[in-house]
Amino acid sequence: MPELMQFLLSGATVGAVYALVALGFTIIYNASDIVNFAQGEFVMLGGMITVFAHMAGLPLPLAALLAIVVTAAIGVALNKLAIEPARGAPVVSLIIITIGASIFIRGAAQLVFDKQLHRFPAFSGDDPIAVLGATILPQSLWVIAGALAVFIGLWLFFTKTLTGLAVLATSNNRLAAQLVGINTSWVMTLSFALSAGIGALAGVLVTPITLTRYDVGIALALKGFAAAMLGGMGSPHGALVGGILLGLLEALTAGYISSQYKDAAAFIVILAVLFAMPQGIFGAKRTERV
């Protein structure tokens, strides 16, 4: 029984990490139909900037805030310099642009920072909290709380705020959105700032657990992308559920079946779910324009 509890807690921790990364994908996707392959680099930047600002003497909360603001600005720059000039290009070209941008950001990070692994102290210490015979680190609770907070924030944003609705309208039909007076360029800028900011926040929260290095973004983005697709791309519900599900799957497979094939089990389940539900669990049916 304590074993099961430990597996669940581990799954929740890892799942929350995936969910946080997955949530970052949703806004840009909702605004522009682009899956931003540089999302993992935002997560990396969040962690690395915090590490280096903290080493330079800034208190941790200030360093984290700086990391989020700087990363959001980089997100805006990415939109202005690479995505907007390519407006109207086929989606696959836009994907290559985001892949190119991710290579660029990694290349810059290894120059500006270094190639070593880093971490900074957990926010509330490293003393494990006992839960029904199992343990969880306080930082895991921060990550889980962060994922929930971002989820609620996004959900409110997309359903209750005018700006959020404008984002959705822009994605559905850019021209129509412009006709009803939505500043679509501003919507895109905002989406990139928010996505990058959420990515950086994820980086700040997970670094004490996962550690960070200039190239951690690739693996995180891969799992986050898979989680988002499992839940249904574009849906905050989907990102949260997909992330947690993926984490639990890995932990339970590692615990009960084989730690060697835990990643394989996760991808097999993703394939199975997509075969049964081709739009993911919470994905909206999008009709194809003819």
């Binding site: 890892v14 990490v17 339970l252 590692a254």
Partner: peptide, 20 residues
Amino acid sequence: DERYGPQDADMTPQLTNIKG
């Protein structure tokens, strides 16, 4: 005899099994 992936974030399930 447990394993983990090089990028994994948490190895408590494997260690729990070893502990047990």
